[in-house]
Amino acid sequence: MLVLELMVVIFLASIVAGVIGSLVGLGGGVVVIPMLTIGLGVNIHYAIGASIVSVIATSSGAAATYVKDKMTNLRVGMFLELATTTGAIIGALIAAYVSSIALELVFGVILLASLIPLVRKIGEDIPVTPELVGLSKKLKLTGSYVETDGSTVNYNATHPAEGLAGMVVAGLISGLLGIGSGTFKVLSMDLAMKLPMKVSTTTSNFMIGVTAAASAGIYFVRGDVDPIIVAPVALGILIGASFGAKALPRAKNPTVRKIFAIVLAIAGAEMVLRALGI
């Protein structure tokens, strides 16, 4: 394949990955990795290096819009980042001693299993606001955003400890596998902390950039970030993510959750299949 063809294919697929990733709070690795490995025969390590960059590009490409719209809950995101950055460092520490195949199998199965509670609340628009108690109250894990119809949605976060635990896992797999950390972030905020779906995905969008940056140094130094692959990935994702970020405020919470459930099913299946060598 000619260099030009390769770059154009990667660029176009990355635009799609950027739109999807910015809508549902993921990094686009679910599209980027199989496109590169299965579609174009690129080595898995280069694909993971590209995926790390795609995560940061999705996060930063959508961020300027989300900051302005005040949909992202910066307090919730920053509090949870304590756990993800710690998890990323632990992941780097133990990476040499664990099998990435076993990890992918375990995390893939966890993702698929989490479809059950997710599907049960698939149509939920705004969660019933729980009373703000304990750590959530102390850390003001609460907020509000304006829906497109002009109504203000107030929400409180619950179960911050469970949220933190989910985030350690998200950081760990970012450090260990370089993929999949966005899914665990959205799941923790949606299922455990009971935030409105759009708050979960935009807050995850902020967080995945920080977590991926925490893990990026190792991939960069190892030489897994190949410029010929990463350039069209980064540019395509930046364009796609800016479209996705503009579309999100108009989307409804149940719609976003449905798209997320589909992407989650694909991501989980991809991890299991890769672990089984299929």
């Binding site: 960059v53 940061i56 930063s60 950039g209 920080v210 940056a213 990026a216 970030v225 980064a234």
Partner: peptide, 9 residues
């Protein structure tokens, strides 16, 4: 350029 992107978060 990738390093500049890394610096944004």
């Amino acid at each position: 350029g990738v390093l500049l992107l890394l610096a944004t978060p």
